[in-house]
Amino acid sequence: MGLEITVLCSLGQHPGSGRPRCATADVRALALALQLGAEVSAVHVGDPESAALRDYLGQTAGRRSLECLDVIDVPTGRDIRPALIDYLRQKNPDVILAGTHAECGEGSGMLAYDLAAALGHALVANIDSLSVAADGSFELTQVLARGRRRALGVDGPLIATIGAGAAVRPVFAYARAVRGQIRRLKPAVECPLFVAPSIRPARARPKRLRAGSGNAAERLRAASETPAGQGRLLVDPSAEEAALAIADYLRAEGLWPPS
């Protein structure tokens, strides 16, 4: 089929132990690409010696895994975007997949947007599945809040981001992780230094309390009692009356008639 997909792989860290590992969202993106049966390449910008990069080589989906991971050798503390843009221009894949946020560092989620602006690709955020229609356009489903999914169609080159909650799950195979190749590349362009931000360890944010007001008795009541709905009360209506009232209420909420 000749579909070419490039997956952007970053280093993640375990939320509990802080050990370096592959980033969950990027692994999902890789699994999605492998599942499709496309020609998959993957690229990381950073230190080629990181042991955690081998984790990517071991991920299998649809009985396939990566044979080779390209690593562009850029020291930490530098802007990786010029190197990545140059690499992707050379490679010119049909689809670029990335995780929504990096797990280490600032993780602002801007990378995909900067790449899309630089390469002039369409960008779709937070997808769950990807397929190619008969006319060569892409069909995507996008994950929305509250369990909903949206169907989208895209013509032409595409960058899509995948969240850590996407449904695809790869299987890890140790032998493939050992067997895979890591190919070092030198950046062809200058990567400028980043301005170091001021960083401090995160403190737990206070939970927002329901604002009680008035004296202690009122505040205790507000904290411990059932918050009363400001509702209508129908005492012993007929079943039809009750059903009509509920239907009217649901209509006001936009839930009636159900779609």
Partner: peptide, 15 residues
Amino acid sequence: VKRGDLSAIKDAQAV
């Protein structure tokens, strides 16, 4: 019923 924004005092099997 106190919590409800709309409450009906009626048998659920009928409603």
